[in-house]
Design a protein around this nucleic acid. Sequence first.
DNA 1: CAGTGGTCTAGACCACATG
DNA 2: ATGTGGTCTAGACCACTGG
Lengths: 261, 261
Amino acid sequence: MKTTTGPSPGPDKGASLLAGFEDVVVRPRRDMPIWRQIYAHILGLIESDFLTAGSQLPGENHMAEKLGVTRITLRRALQELQREGHLTARKGVGIFVRSLPSVFTVRDDRPFLENFNGGGKEVVTQTLVLCRETVTSDAARRLSLAADAEIIRLCRIRSADGHPLYVNTKLFPASRFPDFESVYRRQQSVTDVFRAHGIIKYHRHETRVSGGFAAPDEADMLKLTPGTPVFRVNALNHDERSQPIEWTLGCWPLTSVEFVF
Amino acid sequence: MKTTTGPSPGPDKGASLLAGFEDVVVRPRRDMPIWRQIYAHILGLIESDFLTAGSQLPGENHMAEKLGVTRITLRRALQELQREGHLTARKGVGIFVRSLPSVFTVRDDRPFLENFNGGGKEVVTQTLVLCRETVTSDAARRLSLAADAEIIRLCRIRSADGHPLYVNTKLFPASRFPDFESVYRRQQSVTDVFRAHGIIKYHRHETRVSGGFAAPDEADMLKLTPGTPVFRVNALNHDERSQPIEWTLGCWPLTSVEFVF
DNA sequence: CAGTGGTCTAGACCACATG
DNA sequence: ATGTGGTCTAGACCACTGG
């Protein structure tokens, strides 16, 4: 299916822009509204790999015309697929298949990368922010710091096979890590920063998982439609003397991960 | 605000059906589309307790007219509020405020009810199904049973202050609990069933938390709009000899709970 | 510039629940 | 019979992106 070179339509971007939307019949049914049928059809194209991850859909006007429905009706289906994380729309550009792994196990008690490599995904970590600043009252409470203490803020985004999966912000008490920046810039690893400062063992003290909806900036980073449901993870790490050393706030698309405890 | 008896409009159902929608100005803005302004306005009414949990909104036509927008535009806002769990619509009846606690901590290592009473909520548990049947292959693997073993299925729904919060299905190996039904019917408590069969101590072996979208039957039970995002919890309990004795599948509205580990 | 997705209007018909 | 929410149409204008 992927190496089709003949005249038959394939999922290739440039080929037949309406591949997958030929001979599709949608008409009012008692049990399933039209938009739901379109939803099911497109989802089928994605799950059968006819539409591959990253590929672009035909324009809304083209699809609507081909399906014989109004753009609004089509958009009802597209909207649902966006909220479920299968599609992502970029204004002025187009609609693209996100097609993330439907389940992406994260074991809470293991180093982050271990969970990914099992799935054969290539994981890339990108550092967005690394700076020092004064704590907020919230973070001070969490990290047991004075109100005017200094903290280190580290924001990163992780992608699997080029698809952004996870954005997080980590806060550290600055006093514990005088050489944070230099070590981190060399190794790009928080564990190595810990080790360089004499912290060899640390443990997860508490993990909170809640749900929410992607804010515009989160949606932008994760390539989601704003309002898409997400997991919010909120974790505190302690060193071996039970002192808080790391406060993490993370955000995952709801459909891209499963947490295992 | 709640005991208004004068002519001024209040949130009371029968009073002024359009209370809360007087003098609302919505007009196109660069930074916020109309539907988003309506969304914010209604959310404000809910969060300020002007619209109380369980109360009914005016009809869509009335609201749309009052706001000076099309029904479609209004529905864009209502749809968003439904997906976020603030509203629930019943066809042919009306739209109602769900207004659940935005955070509802569940500590994984504590008995279920302990987490609720702290919030001052009155919790009701309703048993939907209690029956014996042959295992599915999936459940057999999870509970380490033979392919033709018998299991006990228990489906329940839990509500806080009359609002359904949590539906779950529990599966037990039937051979371990000959008197399940009789004990359960008397006490309505799984812990008591365990105790009656000599299991005094048991522990959570594994918990998995994932995300999904309410199926029509789940939506019906939880009084949600189908497609609303939910947590799916999947847990296995072991007895003190590490034998699996309980397999739980649960479903929570995304916005009603926070998991703490 | 042309094409994209985002928003909005003014109608309409339907299935459903209630009185 | 009435009012409700659910669906759908046929247009329209806008802001954004890219060539």
